[in-house]
Nucleic acid binder design. Sequence first.
DNA 1: GCCAACGTTGGC
DNA 2: GCCAACGTTGGC
Length: 159
Amino acid sequence: MPQEQQQYWLMKSEPDECSIDDLAAAPGQTVPWTGVRNYQARNFMRDAMRIGDGVLFYHSSCPQPGIAGLAEVAGPPYPDPTQFDPASPYHDPKSRPEAPRWLLRDVKLVRKTRLLSLKEMRARPELATMRVLQPGNRLSITPVTPEEWRAVLALLEVS
DNA sequence: GCCAACGTTGGC
DNA sequence: GCCAACGTTGGC
């Protein structure tokens, strides 16, 4: 696969922490994706993502879970500062500044969309392959195939 | 609040 | 390196 080919991701955010509206209100409509403490999700951010990749911004752990907007990977990987902050719930005392364990990406809003609810996602056969819908999936960042991406955009009536 | 799924931890 | 215990996730 050519390095230039665009990739797609679904990234879960708890709206209590950072909603699509919080993203829209952030400086530059960009936020650092803090708090990921799962190695597989970290590896996606550190190794696999490329600037400009498409992101489905997903609201989780809330009354109305679902896709709430489109975003993009806005920069290179860098250390998540919360891992070194003893006051942060994401503090990791085992991580050292000279060898940071947790890397993140900045994520920038592309556009807010209607809410494509989890219920509707589950009802759509063309989305049945999505990793986020698989039983037992707990990953907060999952790859999305080009076909899934196009199907979501069609349901959201955006291109 | 429940609970299934599953990642992480730590004793051995 | 195994694996049971434990903690977390996240929809319901």
